[in-house]
Nucleic acid binder design. Sequence first.
DNA 1: TCCAAGTACTTAGCATTGCTAAATATATAA
DNA 2: TTATATATTTAGCAATGCTAAGTACTTGGA
Lengths: 104, 104
Amino acid sequence: MKKGVLEMLVLRLLSEGEKYGYQLISELRERSQGMFLLKEGTLYPILYRMEDDGLVVSRWSEPKGKEVSKKYYRLAEEGRDTLAELEGLWEAFSRTVDGILEME
Amino acid sequence: MKKGVLEMLVLRLLSEGEKYGYQLISELRERSQGMFLLKEGTLYPILYRMEDDGLVVSRWSEPKGKEVSKKYYRLAEEGRDTLAELEGLWEAFSRTVDGILEME
DNA sequence: TCCAAGTACTTAGCATTGCTAAATATATAA
DNA sequence: TTATATATTTAGCAATGCTAAGTACTTGGA
């Protein structure tokens, strides 16, 4: 059921500012009240794909002190457009489904 | 984006009475205002899968006059339960997605 | 000091879902 | 007779997401 929606949600979270992979996983978990429990094997390929497609841009952090280096992703211009598109699609899609379910 | 939702919608249409494949395709097209344009290669495998899983039962019609014989599907008990389940999932899912999209 | 657990990223392989495309068959309309 | 509409079946493929495992570092507890 989640097909395609994950990409939209990741773009949505990134629209608030740059974030790294693990952070996206926990934010999705919290903000969905446990409905989106992504494993790394689910999220990272999405990020790589979106980077290939030019929707996001990544950079490695220079770690301060003992910190581990993290790979931060931020929205590219194209990602912003895609996000708007996907949100429109989602609205139309969910309204249509609700409409069919509520018929009669 | 439609992942899993198609099965739910087909079950929903069948909950109104027995229907045949081609009919389901056109009802989905009309009732979704053209958002769900299923090809046969999409719908029929769904029906076969659901029959294997015991969600629906099929019968061939005895054609009257020049009519072509059609394969009618109706909801099995298990299909009714699954439909209720899927509707609950859909509600929770779409509310969660909307919630994340509307944050801040 | 060692071990477990948490953080963080990567990759391989697979299952499911839905898609395109084509084949078959009959009925009807041009 | 040719195209179009109805109706079902099947093959093969692509996208998406899943499990699972591996690497590496840090932190906390025994």
